[in-house]
């Protein structure tokens, strides 16, 4: 029995698409049997996984702090919904336009990122996010203001609305996840990590820091835009409060809890946070206290999140391996010497 475990392990590590797709199929089958409420939650997890996967590229891999992704997510939802409502455009066209548009908008965020880093970048993106939120509320002629608007849902293969958006989201998220995961295992992933860990050394080794930051912003914005477009069809009702700062912080919690710089974490984080959020739905106060405590607790005691623990279980032994960052290695950690070599 040891052999299959070994091969599952290395297949997972090597970036094979078989396992994620198999998991997606299982999730699809389970999803179709769920009642509408649970399916709604599951779909949220799926959509947020896409969003957090993108956010992870930006914050986890590239070390760029952004507070604008809830706003980008919101723009995706609004553009998708409003194009259908105002212009009568079909959903796929609206979704595509929103994704492309948000990618463009998010790419512009690299401009502050070229000059700023750390908290300064965080605050600059925060100001942008608050400004977007302000526009959503105050440009009522187009956005219907603070009250929000009814966004059309979708129906495919004669399924009901929730099932339709669930399957659509699952397919797109799986594809998106595989692509992003593929990307971070190539030289792009190494460049992301390099500008995070030591951007001066990265540049001296030929990494174009500007281009790399731009790609990280574009990619994460694209994920946010697509996720937003899916979310508008899921919610059926789009309002500014779904995309405020509170949501942004929950997204951050998802990324941190799952594990910054790990693709697996992008799925675990949303699942746990959304589960907890449902448990605490009746008390906003407790929700904030518990999520606040979770964030502090993880930063202090489990800074790499949950995903590395799972990798460790998959690896089957406690070796010192690279748990975050790109995994270009086919057999990472299995052949490494276990003794810590001593110099001097």
């Amino acid at each position: 029995m040891a052999v299959p475990v070994q091969s599952i392990r290395s297949a997972w590590r090597s970036g094979s698409w078989v396992y994620p797709v198999a998991i997606a199929v299982v999730v699809a089958l389970i999803g179709m049997t769920l009642n509408p409420y649970l399916l709604f939650l599951l779909t949220r997890v799926v959509i947020f996984s896409m969003l957090v996967a993108g956010l992870n590229v930006l914050m986890g891999y590239s070390g760029l702090l952004s507070f604008a992704h809830a706003a980008l997510f919101g723009i995706g939802a609004y553009v998708t919904g409003l194009m259908q409502v105002h212009l009568g455009v079909p959903y796929p066209v609206a979704l595509l336009t929103a994704t492309v548009g948000v990618t463009g908008a998010g790419t512009l965020l690299v401009l502050p990122a070229l000059r700023l880093s750390g908290i300064h970048l965080a605050i600059a993106t925060l100001a942008v996010a608050q400004a977007v939120h302000w526009v959503l509320i105050n440009w009522s002629a187009v956005t219907f203001g603070a009250g929000g608007f009814r966004a059309p849902s979708i129906a495919i293969f004669g399924l009901n609305a929730t099932q339709s958006i669930f399957l659509t989201s699952l397919v797109l998220t799986t594809i998106g996840y595989l692509m992003v995961r593929q990307l971070v295992r190539t030289s792009f992933g190494r460049k992301f990590v390099a500008i995070r860990d030591n951007s001066v050394a990265a540049a001296a080794n030929g990494v174009n820091v500007t281009a790399t930051k731009t790609i990280a912003f574009a990619l994460s914005a694209g994920c946010a835009g697509l996720a937003g477009g899916l979310y508008s069809a899921l919610l059926g009702f789009v309002a500014p409060e779904s995309f405020n700062l509170e949501q942004m912080i929950l997204m951050k919690v998802m990324a941190v809890v799952g594990g910054l710089g790990t693709m697996l974490g992008s799925m675990i984080g949303p699942a746990l946070v959304i589960f907890l959020q449902e448990q605490l739905r009746d008390s906003q106060g407790w929700l904030e206290i518990i999520f606040g405590a979770v964030l502090i607790g993880f930063v202090l005691f489990l800074p790499k999140g949950i995903a590395p623990l799972i990798y460790r279980v998959l690896a089957g032994k406690r070796t010192e391996t690279v748990e975050t960052g790109p995994r270009t290695g086919q057999k990472v950690g299995l052949s490494a010497p276990t003794d810590r070599a001593v110099e001097n």
Partner: peptide
């Protein structure tokens, strides 16, 4: 730990706000 600290203070901000709300 600059970035980690920043993240932790966001958690702290949530904690204080939640307490006020409670």
């Amino acid at each position: 730990h600059a970035v980690a600290l920043l993240t932790a203070t966001i958690g702290l901000s949530f904690l204080v706000k939640g307490t006020i709300r409670l």
